[in-house]
Design a protein around this nucleic acid. Structure first.
Lengths: 201, 201
DNA sequence: CCATTACTAGATTGATCGCTCTATTTAACA
DNA sequence: TGTTAAATAGAGCGATCAATCTAGTAATGG
């Protein structure tokens, strides 16, 4: 008899998820219909339901994937470079098409989390995950004497994370905003916040 | 013959808008149905359409009202107190029920703005409005020698505004987060960013 | 090469959507 | 108080929703 190919199955599932992603960015979780997703993926509704039991499952899988890959990407960025450079990189690229779509999805997930406890839990976990990555970097930098030892790493990391969210929201609130000067000042801000205070003369 | 009472008409309209607001916070713009709004307002669908021509009009009116009252409230807060205190107040109250609902609505508007150019324009205008209020305060404070004259008021105000958004997003991403230490560090951050650098000894 | 099963399409389901229509009540002016 | 239009209710419209069902095809193991 014929056996199911788990690899092809997973590939198809991923293909549907990326199609659903495009629809969700365009129309939102509630605004995108199963028919839209099917059209985008080039399949029929009956076919789609062989891979996902419900629309909620698609939203859940999409949200979880977006959050975990986002956190993973941020982790890689932090490993490869200085944290301040990593922060600047994220902010600098906030207007980039893909990153903008990523953030729109994040916002969509934030809204959905208020109605979907599972998604809320994943959101909370991944947010803490990113904060933890930042906090660990801060702790290490404190040990190296690079940043103010008086700062609490957990609190400071939450603020830096919030700064990223805030910067990305700027470009959504006002797409025409000129980010060059803002980015310069953001670097000044992070520097003044983190660097050890000069000893009193 | 009977004449229309414009005051009662406006009151009823406002009543419907506040009912719609509750539905939108709960279910989102797309998720809330006309039937939901009617039930919440205690009226019939036919009745509702005597006050608004379409659901889109309700969303638009709700969004515009939320944005303008939000900007106005912020303006009042800035007039009555020192800007740093005003910022702290907004952040400190981020977990407050009403303010949380306000921010959820803001996020919903941000999403909708991607599909509704009118709402996008209002969003952009009100965001610039708030930034302008902040920038004016910064300029005045620079003239008084209270903050670093080397900072660009426009860029700095954008950052402070983003900081507000970021702080409010923290409590949505992780409702259990302890904001007390974060708020302390936020005050430190704003102080270090804005205060004039100590002259080199 | 046949049996079995995965894969796929598309019509169709009942429910719900935004919205309209008709009918009735209420209230203000003449 | 009679007339007229505003205020209100609720049934019902076609369209679309998420999801299912039926049926046919493709591909694999024996």
């Amino acid at each position: 008899m014929r056996r199911v190919d788990p690899i092809k199955h997973a590939e198809k599932k991923q293909e549907i998820l990326t199609a659903a992603r495009r629809c969700f960015v365009r129309d939102g979780f509630a605004g995108a219909s199963i028919a839209d997703i099917c059209a985008e993926a080039g399949i029929s509704p009956g076919h789609l339901y062989h891979y996902f039991p419900s629309k909620e499952a698609i939203v859940g899988a999409m949200g979880a994937a977006a959050l975990s890959t986002g956190a993973a990407q941020f982790g890689e960025l932090m490993e490869g470079s200085h944290a301040l450079a990593a922060l600047a990189s994220v902010i600098e690229n906030a207007k980039n098409r893909n990153l903008r779509d990523d953030f729109i999805l994040i916002l969509e997930i934030l809204m959905e989390a208020g109605r979907n406890p599972k998604l809320a839990k994943i959101l909370q976990e991944q947010s803490r995950n990113v904060r933890r990555i930042l906090a660990e970097f801060l702790r290490k930098s404190q040990a190296d004497g690079l940043i103010d030892p008086g700062l609490d790493p957990e609190a400071a990391s939450a603020i830096l994370f919030g700064l990223l969210d805030g910067a990305r929201m700027m470009t959504i609130r006002d797409p025409k905003i000129d980010m060059t000067k803002v980015l310069d000042h953001l670097k000044i801000l992070v520097g003044r916040f983190l660097l050890p205070p000069r000893p009193a003369s």
